[in-house]
Nucleic acid binder design. Structure first.
Length: 492
RNA sequence: CGGGGUGUAGCGUAGCCCGGUUAUCGCGCCACGUUUGGGACGUGGAGGCCGCAGGUUCGAAUCCUGCCACCCCGACCA
């Protein structure tokens, strides 16, 4: 394995794959399209989970867990949802293996152990959850029902990429039930706001918040809210979605409640989710040709300390000082790791921690002990300075905040300079091909036009941003009247 | 599922067209020594059913047949 990472300019997609593997985040597994998330990658995911989980609970949700398998009859109940996912479902048809009489030492599926009803491995859990909700909801007093689950789902994708699209992925899916349409819409919007806040404030990734066009909606939804992020190669990435499901699932699974007047009505539903795909967004937003760049909020170790020494006595003296520094840093909530492995030289450690995106690096050598100093290096800017050891705790603390802000602002600047308004199809194509990013254009509102534009340019509508005011115009493709601009982009 | 390609040590590879000593090289790994403020160096060493099965041949990584897996390009996609 070569030491250098392929540069982004050379081959963006190769850069991404190498980075994921070399930074020890994940690797491909023996199972086609499925990845192994390695401890370092999983630690980052756990940080995301912890914060999201906190935010969900703060907004009144509770966690629960529903089965991996969905009986086919339940799965097909909501037609649009079933149709939308049918092409990518893994299906369990048997429940037993046996010794293969024709191949000693091999197993085969026992033909007699065929399931009477096939089980679909969940690509999403609306079906199993709504079939359960039917038993939980009788009265308006049972509402709202605000549930989230952390789970794995399987979508048999043709082409997969680590974190961005894998056959199995981890996610959370919220599924809520409400007495009124307005309340459900408010919930769907609220959760899209939660996602937007989380991704922007915690992950330092700017997003465009908006609604999907009809053709890009979740299968079975009446409205899909989303957050869209922009990667460094100019492609958009859907970072999270929140759906207003109307009464579609309530009707499919016959979930009714008695309102205060004693009248029966179907409940109103939402669902919302973010996945390990956010790891991909994280990587592609901040990282550079030296490797991963982690915002301090997501770094498993915010600070790494590297001793520089020749003799055991020197290491001992350094360790004593480092122990004090670590104690002080931990006291103010900073996570810190002392990399005192004697099997690697300092240069190798520098390179490794850079590759793994540790936000701050402290190097302490014998020289520093004499001078009361420490070398402080920032991962995001790759700058180094020698600073006073006595005030290092405050310095680190404020730098971590600074880095978090700087990363966001840098990404925001990139994003904002890559939203381009166009008023003709020529311009549309020109911008997509030369500059990339989001193209803000008038569109006649039809799926046919979206399809044609996609066919010609590979760009799809990403969303109708909340921030866009109604504006009279004409569709860049058909010239028909349009009431608002939408964002188009090539997407992951 | 259509078109193209590749399987050789943990990873990346040479050799294959044109069959012939002990299968090449680099990284990584192990041991010892010297090193340690930006990816150390030297010496020695371990590691291979050459994707699987069959065939041709005195002899197969190399030729033939079948199978399997993976990758790339399309249709699909959080």
């Amino acid at each position: 394995m070569s030491k250098k990472l392929t540069s982004r300019a050379e081959d963006y997609s190769k850069w991404y794959n190498e980075l994921v593997v070399k930074a020890d985040l994940a690797e491909n597994s023996a199972v086609r399209g499925c990845m192994v998330i390695k401890p370092y990658g999983y630690a980052i995911w756990e940080k995301m989970q912890a914060e999201l989980d906190r935010m969900f609970k703060e907004t009144g949700h509770q966690n629960a867990y529903f089965p991996l398998f969905v009986p086919k009859s339940l799965f097909e109940a909501e037609e649009k949802n079933a149709e939308g996912f049918a092409k990518e479902c893994a299906v369990v048809t048997h429940y037993r293996l046996q010794n293969d009489p024709d191949n000693p030492g091999k197993l085969r599926v026992d033909p007699k152990a065929k399931l009477e009803e096939e089980l679909v491995v969940r690509p999403t859990s609306e079906a199993i959850i709504w079939s359960t909700y039917k038993g939980w909801i009788q009265s308006y007093r049972d509402l709202p029902l605000l549930i989230n689950q952390w789970a794995n789902v399987v979508r048999w994708e043709m082409r997969t990429r680590l974190f961005l699209r894998t056959a199995e992925f981890l996610w959370q899916e919220g599924h809520t039930a409400h007495a009124t349409k307005a309340e459900a819409i408010t919930e769907a919007e609220l959760m899209n706001d939660v996602y937007s806040t989380f991704v922007q404030n915690f992950m330092a990734i700017p997003v465009v918040k908006g609604r999907k066009t009809e053709s890009e909606r979740f299968a079975g939804a009446d409205e899909t809210y989303c957050i869209e992020a922009l990667m460094q190669d100019g492609k958009a990435l859907q970072a999270g979605t929140s759906h207003f499901l109307g009464q579609n699932f309530a009707k499919a699974f016959d979930v009714k409640f008695a309102n205060k007047e004693g009248k029966k009505d179907y409940v109103w539903a939402t669902s919302w989710g973010v996945s390990t795909r956010l790891m991909g967004a994280l990587i592609m937003t901040h990282s550079d040709d030296q490797g991963l760049v982690l915002p301090p909020n997501l770094a498993p170790n915010q600070v790494v300390i590297i001793p520089i020494y020749k003799t055991d006595e020197q290491l001992e003296a350094i360790t004593e000082v480092v122990n004090g520094v670590m104690k002080d840093l931990r006291a103010v909530g900073v996570t810190v790791k002392f990399d005192n492995r004697d099997t690697f030289r300092p240069g190798a450690k520098f390179a490794q921690h850079e590759l793994q995106g540790v936000p701050l690096r402290l190097a302490i050598g014998t020289r520093d002990l004499e001078n009361g100093t420490v070398e402080l290096a920032r991962r995001d800017t790759l700058t180094k300075e020698v600073t006073d050891l006595a005030t290092i705790t405050e310095k680190v603390k404020s730098l971590l905040t600074q880095i978090q802000d700087d990363l966001y602002n840098k990404a925001l600047l990139y994003r904002d300079t890559h939203i381009t308004e166009v008023n003709s199809f020529e311009e549309f194509k020109e911008v997509l091909e030369t500059k990339g990013g989001f193209v803000s254009a008038h569109w006649d509102g039809t799926t046919e036009t979206e399809d044609k534009i996609k066919e010609l340019t590979k760009a799809t509508t990403r969303c109708i941003p909340d921030s866009f005011e109604p504006e009279e115009g004409v569709c860049v493709f058909t010239g028909k009247p349009s009431k608002t601009r939408v964002l188009f982009a090539k997407a992951y």
